[in-house]
Amino acid sequence: MEIARALICSYVFSWIYILSSIPLTLSYRTTKVFNFAHPVFITYGAYVAIFLNEFLNKNTPLFIAALFSFTTGGLIGVLNYLLIIRPLHQRGASPNVHMIATMGAWFVYQYALYIICQVLMKLRGASFLSYPSVEYVDISYIQRAIGLNTPQYIVTSTTLGLVVILSLYVLLNKTMLGFAMRGIADNQILATLCGIPRDKLMALTWFLTGGITALSGILWVNFSGSTTPEIGLHVVVINFAAAFIGGLSSLLVTALASAALALTENIVFLFLSYHLGLQPTIRLAIVFGVVFTILVIRPPLGAGGGLPYRFRTRIGRKVAGP
């Protein structure tokens, strides 16, 4: 059994999923908005790296790609907040309304990207609708300098993943800004009464959400042999699964769930495929089966908790009384 490739895939995908799932949970727990435009951040993050690669004649440094992708994703997040989420919030719209409005935004961004790709295709004669992998020159240079022969995407994902997660940890746990964000997440009214500028912090949360998620896109283009405008959609399904397992509230459980799903998708499936002869066509069904089982057997009690029906009989007995 060729376990090495499956391990590599699990490892890189863990980082891609972590970088895109954590912001999803972060945005939900802070703003209570179920953002259906989340795949846009991943896709635009990836395409910023692709456009840079094309315009810099395939000499893109990782830090430049990260800077541009982070800024683009962040600006899209803030734009969504200002144009859609804040007006809806001010009008007292329900979470479902936010969800469908952001789905409308997804349509707009997705097809705007198709237009950009087609215009650039006509102007530059290159196909952007399915683009080969992008190598980062600065990482290549460092690898050559220190004689590191591992595939570039392992170095890129480790470096970028660790930097982002550590920065996020420091921001949320060691700074006043992070305390304020957590305060907003716990109780918006109380936080506002304590003098926390809710609107500014919401905008900042969306900027961070968009920016960090976009970084998963630049990891994607480095790893995958082909990137299409649909890429965000493929990744976001796992993001939602991980965020739900994390109860839409715990960043740590979301990160662990992301890694666990990456492992299930790769290692577990390789084992089942090789030893039991299962076809890869049922891979997604296995992942969804795992998610379904986790949610049903051990429902997370997070932001979306609700009535734990497993206690119903006990409650019923108590109510009925002797």
Binding site: A241, V291, F292, L295, P299, G306
Partner: peptide, 18 residues
Amino acid sequence: IRVGAGFVGFTLLSVGEI
């Protein structure tokens, strides 16, 4: 119904994909 209101949606979505 065990999973609580917030998670019913995704659980049913999983069923569709399965």
